[in-house]
Write a protein that binds this DNA or RNA. Structure first.
Lengths: 144, 144
DNA sequence: ACAAGATAAATTGTGCACAATTCAATTTTA
DNA sequence: TAAAATTGAATTGTGCACAATTTATCTTGT
């Protein structure tokens, strides 16, 4: 008689990962509403603030998102006036993304978001650091 | 001149959480295709295997999902013949969920999934255990 | 007993997320 | 160098995920 111990939700690694990710994104919502950004748009803008200019392909590699997801997100960000989409002169297949002044300015408003989020999280810095390190290890070793 | 250090993707906790969750669910896909289940349907079935019978409200509390998500998922699982949806006699508002024989049998096939997933994950058991513990701590302390 | 409030699902609308396919531009190769 | 293969975005279709609203049922207070 099998007890299927491995199939219990509490014994899964993926389930808490899935729940934490979802719920943290939900925590972001009221903060990001102030910036008129969804979470996906927010991480897209973070990548843009770091890189100033990059192709859609490079962006997808950074964010782990494919064109099916990014194409509509980028069109929305363009419509909001934060991002410019233009084809590369060198290679017409490539879509080059850059920030508008409005998109650059948004970084000032966004600067308070990480701090506000930290206030919601009631764990020691030590635990948070360990968690951060293990998630990156997980990404690097298991998500190829 | 601000350097916006806190806004860098690599310094965020949420971003690796979001990526790991997404990518792990993607890893599940070929395994769950064998069972004709999506990931959301899979965790729903896991909750059913554990509880045999429960209300939609209880299921939502277990899975951290609201009726907007669960209603269509449960209708799909009913259409696939794994789950029965019926109103409670005591309280017509409540939706009582139970497994069909086919839904129960599916547990046998599902039993190999956790093991197969573990083979994809190239981290020490120690690290996995720590990660698991920290995610639960995070859920318990920060997601109220 | 009945109106007012609370509760449980369902519905509606928006925005991802991804697989699979398509299309156009570029590169490779016979 | 022309056909074949590859590449980068866009498109199409399916399935969540959640906020907000609606509907039906139940509970509570008078």
């Amino acid at each position: 008689m099998a007890d299927y111990e491995q199939l219990r939700l509490n014994n899964q690694l993926c389930f808490p990962l899935y729940v934490c990710a979802k719920e943290v994104v939900r925590k972001y919502k009221p903060l990001l509403d102030e910036l008129d950004l969804t979470y996906t748009q927010y991480i897209t803008m973070m990548a843009m603030w770091e890189h100033e200019q990059l192709s859609a392909k490079e962006l997808g590699a950074i964010l782990y998102l494919d064109s099916g997801t990014l194409t509509p997100v980028l069109k929305t960000l363009e419509k909001k006036g934060f991002v410019v989409r233009q084809r590369s002169k060198d290679d017409e297949r490539s879509l080059i993304l850059s920030l508008t002044p409005s998109g650059k300015n948004l970084q000032d408003k966004a600067a308070s978001v990480p701090e506000a989020m930290m206030k919601c999280i009631d764990m020691s810095l030590d635990d948070l650091h360990t968690l951060h390190k293990l998630l990156h290890k997980f990404m690097d070793t298991s998500l190829k």
